[in-house]
Write a protein that binds this DNA or RNA. Structure first.
Lengths: 243, 243
DNA sequence: CAGTGGTCTAGACCACTTT
DNA sequence: AAGTGGTCTAGACCACTGA
């Protein structure tokens, strides 16, 4: 194993993931951790960290005393809800050619929900960008991002909004998006949303209503997104919580 | 620290979690890992494992070179989507007195979706249990569980179905539920579901359609659940996926 | 019983942030 | 420069599985 760039653990994870994809393991059985450690020339801890990540992703499962195995069911997942980052990436993972259209860039006063989520006052100006993602020309995701205008440096053109939101936040706000806290809200799509997504009005849909935080845990963006369910269905793995 | 029962890591996690709840840390700053290790008499690895779990739960966040801090926003989460296990527990976490009503226990032939999910043939008999959860008397969650009849030992009464599904699977099927792979489906609730949840017909709702697997990664149960969104809203933390 | 994953230790070095 | 979290090592012992 080479050691430049990503961490050893990440390299090991990739290595094993590729081996799984190439079906190099007979019977879906993955070698013992100690064997992998010897073979790859790293410590067992590093192997275990990599395997833990793969287990969390659903690519493998482990049984104490028995061994580590490929998870046939988990491999089918295309878009894991808790790992979604850019819609371009999600759509690409589905095997489509994604395209982005910036519908609108404007500044408006914050409404109550936005102000509360972003920790600003009602009426404070927020920059709103509306984007529509299509795959093979069909609209799939509609998103609205709201960023406190006080965070945005300089004038923003529509062309600036094309980039993924975390790139925008890094470039124009000097903040790095760390994670989202997301609410899942069932809705009947209203007239405007339905029209943009080319759905029947009042059709059921899932709406993400989420706040994005930077590495200092400060809220920096409120994102609201609607999805065409038939085209983009979300999955997740649910495990027992520690009590 | 005592070492009986749960792992050291789990004890440390609980210890720190309680300290956070009691606001023992000034300025939301959590002591350095090395200090915690000395104070609690465990290795830094154990501390780190405990902190990693708390970070994943959203209770804390870490910044390399700076320190570890309480996550004020994450603490507000009541029901994390990826950690839901029993609806009784979820409702209790919301501060309500939950109650369970078994609506129906029957055996029926598997439809296509059930057969595919459970790896059985269409028409094979499945045991179906319907349950309604209320909080303070108000219906909140409706669930249908389908288990291949071949897995179920002995005759099942309605009273047997009252227990949480993983207890049922352990008691009557000798299987231990390991995790769910869950689809989130937006729906308009139909007449029967709406009536049972006392919702307006055709109101939007989120439906879980999920397959539960045992520790051998074999599908053992298909669960379908509907929720009253106003009463039980789901949240999750989304982080950047490893690419 | 041998082999496997689960837990834990003690220590090293690095990358990064803050003073 | 000092302090912090991030990565990695080498090794120990335990709990569990399966032949």
């Amino acid at each position: 194993m080479i050691s430049r760039g990503p961490s050893l653990t990440e390299q090991v994870r990739q290595h094993i993931k590729e081996a799984i994809a190439e079906e190099q393991f007979e019977d879906g059985r993955i070698p013992a951790e100690a064997d992998l450690a010897t073979e790859l020339g790293v410590s067992r801890t590093t192997i275990r960290d990599a395997l833990s990540r793969l287990e969390h992703e659903g690519a493998i499962y482990r049984r104490q005393g028995a061994g580590t195995f490929v998870n046939q069911h988990g491999l089918q997942i295309r878009s894991k809800l808790d790992e979604i980052w850019s819609y371009e990436d999600v759509l690409e993972a589905h095997g489509y050619q994604p395209s982005v259209q910036v519908l609108n860039v404007r500044t408006e006063p914050a409404d109550e929900a936005t102000a509360e989520g972003l920790g600003i006052d009602i009426g404070d100006p927020v920059l709103v960008t509306e984007k529509l993602f299509r795959e093979d020309g069909v609209p799939v995701v509609l998103t609205e991002n709201r960023i406190p205008a006080a965070l945005v440096g300089g004038d923003i053109q529509e062309s600036d909004a094309r980039m993924p939101i975390w790139d925008f936040l890094a470039t124009h706000c000097g903040r790095s998006l760390s994670h989202y806290l997301s609410d899942l809200v069932p809705v009947s799509v209203g007239g405007v949303v339905a029209a943009r997504l080319e759905m029947k009005a009042s059709a059921p849909a899932i709406c993400f209503d989420e706040i994005g935080y930077d590495s200092d845990n400060e809220p920096i963006v409120r994102a609201t997104s609607w999805f065409r369910d038939e085209l983009l269905r979300f999955r997740l793995i649910r495990r027992r919580a520690a009590m």
